[in-house]
Lab assay of single mutants.
Amino acid sequence: MSGNGNAAATAEENSPKMRVIRVGTRKSQLARIQTDSVVATLKASYPGLQFEIIAMSTTGDKILDTALSKIGEKSLFTKELEHALEKNEVDLVVHSLKDLPTVLPPGFTIGAICKRENPHDAVVFHPKFVGKTLETLPEKSVVGTSSLRRAAQLQRKFPHLEFRSIRGNLNTRLRKLDEQQEFSAIILATAGLQRMGWHNRVGQILHPEECMYAVGQGALGVEVRAKDQDILDLVGVLHDPETLLRCIAERAFLRHLEGGCSVPVAVHTAMKDGQLYLTGGVWSLDGSDSIQETMQATIHVPAQHEDGPEDDPQLVGITARNIPRGPQLAAQNLGISLANLLLSKGAKNILDVARQLNDAH
């Protein structure tokens, strides 16, 4: 009898209710805020589980004197976190989706994509230029951005401005803007500013005609071990179906173009009346040469937790077992079709030249 009692006690200790789920994140304040929001949602869904947040620095956090596009290494903000995932030191990792490459290392998958916040870019102005827009900034004003995508589009749109690289986390960039006289304004992701509670610093939100956004911008991705079915089931509740389908289309477009950090590629997606609209573009580094096109596809946005595919093969690095396969494939095909259209119009040449120029500098 006593033996059975011990077995029952052991089973209770090993039951999922007692389990601590370890969540990996970057150390920056924004990353911690984003991770806290994901953990809060998981806690609400699984009140019996405990969650421990483990923060670590990544290569991208450490190399702050070089433009991201020049470092010449993929997975700048993800490699150390993936290493911890691989060694079973954490069970899942919360990322900004735009930091996750469209091809993940073997053994990993994006197990959830959370509801997207505003994906557009924002302009934050130096205190002396508050009330201005990019259009009304004085001639030769210097605007800071760490992104080739932003610089290429904005140089084309605002030729009277000069664009220079600015690195560091959000706090560091804002301090550089406010305390030094080098920059009249800087460009940042609206979602990051909003998550930090800095709505009052948003001086201008850039519309798609001015600057399309990065693939996955404004959404959070939760990376897990691809074979860890328990954790895949656990994080599945975080999937937002519309965000998922938009981001599958965007990531398929980028992957098929073979774009990345070192080339200016941008997108804009919208879901309306059962249609998914995808606009994508590529630019030369100075913005003088560009190709942009829009395509659409009829896609039914499923309700969360309709029964999805059981075999769960990944699409552009994403596993969404609780979302039907048909809409996911339709979104992926839309991204591939748009990429093929741009490639047929000469996108590869623009991107190759951009890559060579970026590598040469």
Rank of each mutant, 00 (worst) to 15 (best):
20 V>L: 08
26 R>E: 00
32 R>W: 09
32 R>C: 11
33 I>R: 10
34 Q>D: 03
34 Q>L: 05
38 V>I: 14
39 V>N: 08
46 Y>K: 09
46 Y>V: 14
47 P>E: 01
48 G>Y: 08
49 L>S: 11
50 Q>H: 13
53 I>H: 02
54 I>H: 05
55 A>W: 08
56 M>T: 11
58 T>R: 02
58 T>Q: 04
60 G>H: 02
62 K>R: 07
65 D>P: 09
69 S>T: 11
72 G>R: 08
72 G>P: 13
77 F>R: 01
80 E>A: 11
80 E>G: 08
81 L>A: 05
82 E>S: 10
83 H>E: 13
83 H>D: 12
84 A>M: 14
85 L>E: 03
85 L>P: 02
88 N>Y: 12
95 H>I: 03
96 S>V: 02
104 L>G: 08
110 I>E: 04
110 I>A: 01
112 A>I: 01
115 K>G: 13
116 R>W: 04
118 N>W: 10
120 H>G: 09
121 D>P: 03
124 V>S: 07
126 H>G: 11
127 P>K: 10
129 F>G: 08
133 T>G: 06
134 L>R: 03
137 L>N: 04
137 L>E: 03
138 P>C: 10
140 K>G: 11
144 G>I: 02
144 G>V: 05
150 R>Q: 02
152 A>Q: 05
159 P>T: 09
161 L>P: 02
163 F>P: 12
164 R>A: 11
166 I>W: 12
167 R>I: 08
168 G>Q: 02
168 G>P: 03
170 L>S: 07
171 N>F: 04
171 N>W: 14
173 R>V: 02
174 L>G: 04
177 L>W: 01
181 Q>P: 06
181 Q>K: 12
184 S>C: 15
189 A>H: 00
189 A>V: 02
190 T>G: 11
194 Q>N: 06
196 M>T: 05
199 H>P: 15
201 R>I: 15
202 V>Q: 06
204 Q>M: 00
207 H>V: 10
214 A>F: 05
215 V>S: 13
218 G>W: 02
221 G>C: 09
226 A>R: 07
228 D>E: 15
229 Q>N: 13
229 Q>H: 12
232 L>C: 11
236 G>E: 00
236 G>W: 00
238 L>D: 10
239 H>K: 06
244 L>Y: 14
246 R>N: 07
248 I>S: 07
249 A>N: 00
249 A>P: 04
249 A>L: 04
258 E>L: 03
260 G>S: 00
263 V>H: 02
265 V>G: 04
265 V>S: 01
267 V>W: 02
277 Y>T: 06
281 G>Y: 00
281 G>A: 12
282 V>T: 08
283 W>M: 01
287 G>M: 13
287 G>H: 05
288 S>K: 07
289 D>G: 08
291 I>G: 07
292 Q>K: 05
294 T>R: 10
297 A>T: 12
297 A>F: 00
298 T>C: 07
299 I>K: 05
300 H>V: 14
302 P>L: 11
304 Q>R: 13
305 H>I: 14
306 E>R: 12
308 G>I: 14
314 Q>I: 06
318 I>T: 06
320 A>M: 05
322 N>A: 00
325 R>Y: 07
337 S>W: 00
338 L>V: 03
342 L>F: 15
342 L>I: 06
343 L>P: 05
343 L>W: 15
345 K>P: 00
350 I>Y: 15
351 L>R: 06
356 Q>T: 03
358 N>Y: 15
359 D>S: 03
